[in-house]
Design a protein around this nucleic acid. Structure first.
Lengths: 119, 119
DNA sequence: TCAGATAGAGATAAATTTATCCCTATTGAA
DNA sequence: TTCAATAGGGATAAATTTATCTCTATCTGA
């Protein structure tokens, strides 16, 4: 596993939230769990761009930060379900607002992103 | 300069906003500019954890994504001021909400982050 | 019996992001 | 006249994050 070499600054709310939410797939994971896709395999299908491995790792971090909980059913084949904790649930309005802004400005953003790729 | 090797997924609002806001200092830069710290040197003092260079680079990206604008005064020593465009301004409520969540949960977050450092 | 679904993790490679170091220029103050 | 402040950028190194590949295990259905 990777060992951090530098201490992060934790000066303000943005630093603090960044430590738990700054990860390529974390907001999507929280959002999809909130939408009812709670099993790892469902989440993997919802986020095809991410490998199985990475989602597992990020789910584990979300869990250790108490944003999601996990239920392991003692059955075979294995069954696992994630759920939002109250703490994680409290982020949903914010993630919703972020995604909504992106949706609202979709066209403009696509153009800007395209423009900033090649030149 | 760094050349991207893979195309990002742009499937939903979260992907889109990520392309312009996903950078260690970007939200802070927007926030401080919004607070009235508009000159590069002021921003550098507000964000001591970041090097001069990195802030310049991230400001440039924010500019190319039309979230901030830049006024160069033709004086010596040089004077530059950044300002939020309407587009950038529209992100302020969201950044505010994000930071507020972090502030509200400061204590809990500090404990969680600390717990997840060493073990 | 073999393929595919389920869930998870170690080792390692690749990509990306951030940081560091060293340049350019000019003015005013000590 | 030397230092600090102003703003910016290239080259490169380091840190971090993400992806890939390879394992383990068990059950169901063809």
């Amino acid at each position: 596993m990777y060992e951090r070499k530098t201490m992060p600054d934790l000066l303000c709310g943005l630093d603090l939230i960044g430590e738990v939410l700054y990860g390529k797939w974390k907001m999507r994971l929280l959002w999809f769990i909130h939408q009812g896709f709670q099993r790892p395999s469902e989440l993997q299908r919802k986020i095809p761009g991410a490998s199985r491995r990475v989602l597992n790792v990020q789910l584990k971090e979300l869990e250790s930060h108490e944003l999601v909980g996990k239920v392991i059913y003692p059955v075979l084949p294995p069954k696992v379900e994630y759920y939002l904790t109250d703490f994680g649930q409290s982020l949903i309005p914010i993630i919703g607002a972020i995604g909504q802004w992106g949706d609202q400005h979709e066209e403009r953003l696509r153009k800007l992103i395209a423009k900033n790729m090649e030149p």
